[in-house]
Computed example of a mutant assay.
Amino acid sequence: MISQAVARGKVWHQRLVPFRHGFHYPLWLVWCDLAEVDAMLARHPGWGRRWRPVVFRDSDFVDSRPDNLENKVREKAAALGLQWTGGRVVMLGQWRTLGTLFNPLVLYLHFAEGSDQPDSMLAEVQNTPWRERPFLPAGAAKKRSRKLGRPAIPRRSMYRLFCPWHWTIIGIFTWLYPACA
């Protein structure tokens, strides 16, 4: 399995009600085994832990403590009922670029010892208007849906009350969608 990579793609959004609105723009994300962050930073002179165009800071993720990110993710997973004591933890997310961090969603995937398929995932939502960081755990069989008690980012109270949200996981591709859509 690939332990370090840069993924390129597009992010998009479209809303039709109450008025038409949409956007799409290019995006890049880092796929990195959290035990190998320093090895990935060493591959490019413009990447580092400080004073570079691309900066990785442990304090940008999970909470503001400067502790090792792998340890913080494993602690958060354990607090949410996931068994991540062994195996590898891989992150898919945006790193600080030119001093700015825009990272609406960070995915942490757990791979059991010797496995090349994730067995569970933890999603960190960072762009809530009330500055919370909800964490959404998902156990992963090859395909599984998990009802959430409330949407990750509630928009309208009626929608939140009558439309539960689901995670769907197929391999490393993840979707969060309203069940009544």
Results as ranks from 00 to 15, higher is better:
Ser3Cys: 09
Ala5Asn: 13
Ala7His: 11
Gly9His: 06
Gly9Met: 07
Lys10Tyr: 15
His13Trp: 00
Arg15Cys: 09
Leu16Cys: 09
Leu16Ser: 15
Pro18Val: 02
Phe19His: 13
Arg20Met: 11
His21Tyr: 15
Phe23Ser: 02
Pro26Arg: 14
Pro26Asp: 14
Cys32Glu: 04
Asp33Asn: 13
Leu34Val: 05
Glu36Met: 10
Met40Ser: 11
Val54Gly: 07
Val54Leu: 14
Val55Glu: 08
Arg65Ser: 15
Asn68Gly: 08
Asn68Phe: 04
Glu70Pro: 01
Asn71Glu: 11
Asn71Pro: 02
Lys72Glu: 00
Arg74Ser: 02
Glu75Arg: 13
Ala77Ile: 01
Ala79Lys: 01
Gln83Arg: 14
Thr85Asp: 08
Val90Leu: 12
Gly93Trp: 01
Gly93Phe: 04
Gln94Ala: 10
Trp95Gln: 03
Arg96Val: 02
Thr100Leu: 11
Val106Ala: 15
Leu107Asp: 04
His110Glu: 05
Ala112Met: 07
Ser115Gly: 07
Asp116Lys: 03
Gln117Ile: 04
Pro118Ala: 01
Pro118Leu: 01
Asp119Gln: 13
Asp119Val: 07
Ser120Cys: 15
Met121Val: 10
Ala123Tyr: 06
Gln126Lys: 12
Asn127Pro: 02
Pro129Thr: 11
Leu136Tyr: 13
Arg144Ser: 11
Arg146Val: 14
Gly149Val: 12
Ile153Met: 15
Pro154Gly: 02
Pro154Leu: 05
Met158Cys: 06
Cys163Gly: 05
Pro164Gly: 05
Pro164Asn: 05
Trp167Ser: 05
Ile170Met: 09
Ile172Met: 04
Ala179Asn: 12
Ala181Pro: 04
